[in-house]
Design a protein around this nucleic acid. Structure first.
Lengths: 330, 330
DNA sequence: TTTAGCACTCTTCTTTTTTGAATGCTAAAA
DNA sequence: TTTTAGCATTCAAAAAAGAAGAGTGCTAAA
């Protein structure tokens, strides 16, 4: 469909526009392509015909259309090598094994946003791949306990238990022992149903004040789906010239605060996904690049949010690098 | 210094400006004060003389100066009753005892920002008032353990331990028993020094491979000062007309992302504090109202960030209400 | 197929004009 | 002494007009 020169031209226009944010004129190209501006104009008209380029007004230079970006991303763009410096920065996180997961994620998201000048988001989920390894209980005072669940992957969850009745220390111990016996090896998201269908029917055999205790544990362990959202570099996208009106900036900031919008980023397929302009829920000038990762059984999504005019090659390479580094850890 | 009518006038101007964000004209006031606009103009000139009012240009209406707001806040403003609806909303959080601290804080900050239309921040700190109640260890695999510390107030911290050498399960048990024996009752921020000065000298007597184990625990327990920042309603302040230029919005968003700036909010004295305009680190059009709280031994600061033109009475009343409700829990 | 040349379009920046809301001041009224 | 009516004056904000310049499309020649 496109001849070689047209492909080259589209590439030049996309990359020039990404750099400058200004419509690209035929004159600006002709040196690089060794022909006159009139020739370029002819080819530009052809690319516009195909819907790959647009004008901002009738006598303006060309900018890539959404379809143009898509063509660039799917057919033209080459993966870009990470610089040694970037690689080094990433290694300092990946190789720091003493970090707790939360800190690990916070650090990563900060470095990624700084490296790309984009807004970075990591959406984490307590994964189904976590199996209960141990349940511990620590009494705080007469009516309050802390219940702690540790999984085989080292994930820790804790909950406050409030028990209205007076219960004996022995009853508590019996309950915890029973729960441990029955629940170790259960997937985190099945804990609730194991409690209900396996433990509830038999707990009366072992524990006197079973009702109060069962209820307390059930309430606490009912739902372990804790989702975490960590963002960094919100300002980066707002500094871009396409977001220079108060309305647009406010709109983006509002979207960043809307948990529903942010959580919907995780939806859909695997691999590295690119959503351009109207394909995002944010704004026609926004592109989102995202990918899923699995870190020690914690599933998550890492997303980069920036202007449609972002450095796609760098962003994609970076995400690929990160996920391949994260996933290979065991 | 000010006569009664001047006080009344200042009050009217501040409150009108808070509502409308438009300079207040003499004409707008004269109905309320039962005199002609010319009389008001005379009084306005006097208040301007005192530095309590300003003009945006030579023939504009008046707006309160920073000093004017300060006078209003310190001398004129009356505490405002919370509406029943607001009170109810707050009760739904305060009375939900099953919430884990994190969720409690997230919920609170959201509701407060929604109620006030301001940006709300809660800065929490693992307090010195937490004393170790129990240390537990759960092995994950040969070289990794999860160490969990529970405090008397129900605060839970966990850390990954990586132990390079092979150590026996018995050694681990001995170490944990020793640590528990020595460390229970220690303040969270003293755990490091107890390890170093009390446990390190004697651990060799109880544990064979004491070095690897001691190091692992020391690294993990060295530092428990975990600070959390939760914000909600960033967009609220940005929607205000004083933040309608891209530069101002971007500046505020950047400040919101600057951990140093945010953490400095916690500095300085107790009680409810009000920082107006240039007294803040944000912007001359910003006011910050903050107060410290102590919730089950977790110390923190709750701050409301909004335009200088905020509803001071409502904000102050709300913060007072919250802290008195939080602090009285035991 | 490519290119030089030219008329034409439209944005952006600057300048001018118009309108109207407020003020300060003066002098008269209370 | 305090209040008020009246009026000239100031300035912001919006609308209108003008000037400059960057780019295009199209035609006709190379």
């Amino acid at each position: 469909m496109l001849n070689g020169r047209q492909v080259e031209l589209l590439k030049l226009i996309v990359e020039d526009y990404i750099k400058t944010a200004k419509p690209v004129s035929s004159k600006a190209i002709c040196d690089t392509l060794n022909c006159s501006s009139a020739t370029i104009r002819n080819e530009m008209a052809a690319l516009e015909e195909y819907g790959l380029l647009e004008k901002t007004h009738i006598s303006s230079g060309r900018i890539p259309s959404e379809k143009g970006y898509r063509y660039y991303v799917d057919n033209i763009m080459q993966p870009k090598e990470l610089t040694g410096e970037d690689m080094l920065k990433l290694q300092t996180i990946f190789q720091n094994s003493s970090l707790v997961l939360d800190d690990y994620i916070t650090k990563s998201v900060e470095i990624v946003s700084e490296m790309t000048n984009l807004t970075a988001v990591i959406l984490g989920k307590s994964s189904k791949e976590n199996f209960v390894s141990k349940v511990e209980v620590v009494p705080i005072n007469e009516h309050n306990l802390i219940a702690i669940v540790v999984t085989d992957k080292g994930h820790v969850e804790h909950r406050n238990l409030t028990i209205e009745e007076d219960v004996s220390a022995n009853d508590i111990k019996q309950t915890v022992d029973l729960i441990n016996k029955m629940i170790v090896g259960t997937q985190l998201d099945e804990v609730g149903s194991v409690l209900e269908y396996k433990i509830k029917p038999i707990i009366a055999n072992y524990v006197k004040q079973h009702e109060a205790l069962y209820n307390a544990f059930y309430n606490a362990f009912n739902d372990f789906t804790k989702e975490s959202v960590v963002m960094a570099g919100r300002k980066n996208i707002l500094m871009q010239p396409e977001f220079s009106t108060p309305e647009k900036i406010r709109d983006i900031v509002s979207k960043f605060e809307d948990k529903q919008v942010i959580n919907r980023i995780t939806e859909e397929d695997d691999g590295v996904n690119i959503y351009i302009g109207s394909e995002t829920e944010f704004d026609d000038d926004v592109t989102i690049i995202k990918t899923k990762y699995n870190l020690n059984g914690e599933e998550g999504t890492i997303a980069l949010i920036g202007p449609k005019r972002m450095e796609y090659d760098k962003a994609v390479t970076l995400l690929n690098y990160i996920t391949s580094n994260i996933d290979k850890e065991d």
